[in-house]
């Protein structure tokens, strides 16, 4: 049965397409990934949440460098740099690092929206049973980037892991715009924000995160 997002504490009702998008992200987080089990993926999610709240993380068997990278990315992304990522990839490999980056990043989307709405954070889902899928694109290289990826812009940045890249891209539409809408300067989500207002939020968020992208 799919997890139901309640947005408890939100002063306004939430559109169904956004609830559905977050339900899909929650299912994605709970599933076995390319290199990690569902349990391990949710251990990373729980760890980074605790790092932000200042609580003591639960002990687990995941590599400490991987947990440190994920927590740093979640709490203060501007502190993540090439040497930190490369040190972790040397310890656990590129695919596991990309998987951890995706977990911290996708959780930031869901938790960030809840925080802006003043809603309670959604409890993490229960893990699904199964072994890692080993679904990894072979032959990719670094393109002056910290991890291997195809040529292109940020929507393909996680495509070392095809299922992860797909989940990432599928979340854009309800949260921001569909990829084909991104070319429209006059996009208007009536009722809701128009493109200029949307880009004010995106620009200020990126500036506060000290992220130029």
């Amino acid at each position: 049965m799919a997890h139901v997002f309640e947005f408890k504490g939100s002063p306004v009702p939430i559109r169904d397409d956004l609830k559905d998008a977050y339900t899909r992200l929650w299912s994605h987080l709970a599933e076995p990934g390319p290199t990690l089990t569902g349990t391990q993926r949710l251990e990373i999610a729980a760890h980074v949440r605790m790092a932000r709240s200042g609580d003591t993380p639960q002990p687990n068997d995941l590599p400490s460098s991987l947990l440190t990278l994920a927590a740093t990315l979640f709490v203060d992304p501007s502190r993540v740099d090439g040497p930190m990522v490369l040190q972790t990839t040397e310890a656990v490999g590129d695919p596991m690092v990309v998987e951890a980056i995706s977990i911290a990043s996708m959780l930031s989307a869901v938790d960030g929206a809840h925080a802006a709405l003043g809603a309670d954070l959604e409890p993490l889902p229960s893990p699904l049973v199964g072994n890692p899928t080993d679904e990894i694109t072979r032959g990719l290289k670094r393109r002056h980037t910290h991890v291997p990826m195809p040529a292109g812009a940020i929507p393909i940045a996680l495509d070392l892991l095809p299922s992860v890249g797909k989940a990432f891209r599928n979340s854009f539409g309800p949260q921001y715009m569909m990829e084909h809408e991104m070319a429209s300067a006059d996009f208007d989500r009536t009722p809701g924000l128009n493109r200029a207002q949307i880009e004010i939020v995106s620009s200020r968020t990126s500036l506060r995160n000290k992220c130029f992208y």
Binding site: S105, S108, G112, A113, I154, Q175, Y176, V201, S202
Partner: peptide, 11 residues
């Protein structure tokens, strides 16, 4: 949108 760019910045 805020949530989306929290995610994009981290990616």
């Amino acid at each position: 949108v805020f949530g989306n760019f929290e995610m994009m910045n981290r990616v």
